[in-house]
Design a protein around this nucleic acid. Structure first.
Lengths: 345, 345
DNA sequence: TAATTCTTTGACAACGATGAATCTCGGTGC
DNA sequence: GCACCGAGATTCATCGTTGTCAAAGAATTA
């Protein structure tokens, strides 16, 4: 590897002048600039970002803290964020917590101080911990839940999305619409589960339909395919009549698809099913799954915009900004029937 | 952030002594060591890895170059690699190429020189380029294809895996077994598509069955669900009789599931289907999908072991090591029927 | 013409750590 | 009693950049 010094020697100028050219600073004559650029090209010089970071203190690496990567929603979120970060000249360092609240804090404490910024999908963070995190490094949360802390946050339209989904079901003539994915355990007030359940109630109210307790299916502790299938099986076994399932996550919905078909019911003729997240699989399941696309690209864009602001001057920004991404209803076979919709998102 | 200097001042020793304690070097008296450790704890000091990297030249960041992240195989591979890297004290920096051959080289040229090592899933790399990459940074390829270059490589048992899959079909009584995912375009000699097709032929030969050209379905340019479904539809439209589909990737198999069911055929009673990769979805599709698990955890383990070796002393290692991971056949409903297998991997 | 400004460039220190070389000092051997 | 040794600690230079300050020369002004 050649260094700035090599370039300087080759171009016959001082090291500092090379630095100026590399950083596009003004007050370098056109002639000198060309000489230096030629030398840079000849030596295939690339600035050593480690040395630069050390000197400037500004670090162009941002951490991305996620529970896991193997779940489609997270991997596509990560992908969107990486693409967006590139546009900002930032490098993304992914860290996995396995959804473990302690690991979250441990990671932040360990790596936070040496990161330029942090994008975090918090799972078990308390308000106090959120404040601590924000004190260590410029942070943006990607979270359903609000924190009592001076942190920016990007959220998806949980409530509105499910509300629209219910509206869609109603418009197609379904009236006994089950909600799959409620959670009445000790979840925090404004968790995704609660917000989505609120959206479900909103949708029913919009349509003048009653909210029947027997159609609200609890799923605990996680929104997985197995538990989704299990929830629907319970519903069927109890003999509760229903003609639609609004699942609070695609994983649940895929489980529901399975359980419904297993019971010999046709989708969507006898039962319509819809999910939330619009993961890749939604477009390719059998039948393909109607789902709410939570605007992942927009989430990535906004999160990086917020973070970049804050990295550039931490103090000046208003303390606690919130961006809610737009959602889009992706209608597919599981509510509409036909096969035309299959194979695409 | 406190620095070593702060710690030194606090402990009343020299900066270098702190360095010794932090790095666990000998020739520090027990008494001094305790004083220093106390100071470290009091100040919550953490060594600045940027400065350390600059000074030592040894970088504990390894790049992981992948085509994408949103595809389940890659995200679970990435996850496995990150966990494994942690055990080696290494940090993983993921870079995405979108499967673009030029982007691969551009990324390596750009970041390679400042990385400690590189794990790469190459897509469009030529032998010459592979040599170039290896010259820039210690590299391990995770690749089906062999390269004429002094690089270590970790591969999966492409050929053996498909062979076992065909054997499984045969043992269940299927005889007209289609191969889904051949590619007779200008792919390199030892690509995954070719190796898996070889495995298919092996399996038929093992069973004394003929390899019928009309049962070999080309899929090009990529192994996606749509193209998988399209391939099976072609087969059905041509009126070719078949009773099993061995797909060279889960994505293809999921498309096949769809196309087969769409045609009103029952799985596995009339047609059995199996895939390759054992992605999460395989366990949860309808019906659940028999698949070859390529030993991702082992791949991650071996890749990091090889890379670590090479990072520690580049020259000493034998030039071109190859590790082939063990595979495992995950039998599920799509070949075996029943529902017992559903829901788990 | 001399004084002043502006433009372009360079010398030097510093970021926070580590490697090499050096120093100190109590303990040995003769 | 003197040279020698080695463990334990220190000093100094250095990794590859960038920020600060100053210098040299060209251009402008009085």
């Amino acid at each position: 590897m050649s260094t700035m010094n090599d370039v300087a020697l080759r171009a016959g100028v001082s090291l500092k002048t090379v630095s100026r050219v590399v950083n596009g600073e003004p007050s370098v004559s056109e002639q000198t600039r060309q000489k230096v650029n030629a030398a840079i090209a000849e030596l295939d010089f690339r600035p050593n970002s480690v040395a630069r970071n050390l000197r400037t203190g500004r670090i162009d690496v941002v951490g991305l803290v996620l529970p896991q990567l193997s779940q489609p929603y997270f991997s596509s979120l990560a992908e969107a964020i990486m693409r967006e970060a590139e546009r900002h000249g930032l490098t993304v360092l992914i860290e996995l917590t396995d959804g473990d609240a302690e690991a979250e804090m441990a990671l932040v404490r360990e790596h936070g101080p040496h990161l330029g910024g942090l994008l975090m999908y918090p799972v078990g963070l308390s308000d106090a911990e959120a404040r601590t995190v924000a004190g260590i490094v410029p942070t943006v949360f990607m979270s359903e839940r609000a924190y009592d802390a001076p942190v920016d946050r990007v959220a998806m339209a949980n409530r509105e999305g499910v509300r629209a989904l219910v509206g869609h079901m109603v418009s197609l003539g379904y009236t006994r619409i089950a909600a799959l994915g409620a959670d009445h355990s000790d979840l925090p007030e404004r968790s995704a589960a609660h917000l989505r359940l609120d959206g479900y109630r909103d949708g029913l109210r919009d349509a003048g339909l009653p909210c029947l307790p027997e159609l609200v299916i609890d799923v605990h502790p996680q929104w997985s395919r197995q538990l989704g299938a299990a929830g629907v099986r319970r519903l069927i076994e109890r003999g509760t009549s229903f003609d639609a399932v609004v699942a609070f996550a695609d994983a649940l919905a895929l489980g529901a698809l399975h359980a419904v078909q297993e019971a010999g019911l046709r989708i969507p003729a006898e039962v319509a099913v819809a999910g939330f997240d619009d993961t890749d699989e939604a477009g390719y399941s059998y039948p393909s799954l109607t789902s709410v696309a939570p605007g992942t690209a927009q989430i990535a864009r906004e999160a990086l915009a917020l973070l970049n602001d804050r990295m550039n001057d931490a103090a000046a920004q208003p303390a606690e900004r919130l961006v809610v991404a737009d959602f889009e209803l992706m209608v597919r076979e599981s509510t509409l029937g036909g096969t035309a919709a299959w194979g695409g998102a």
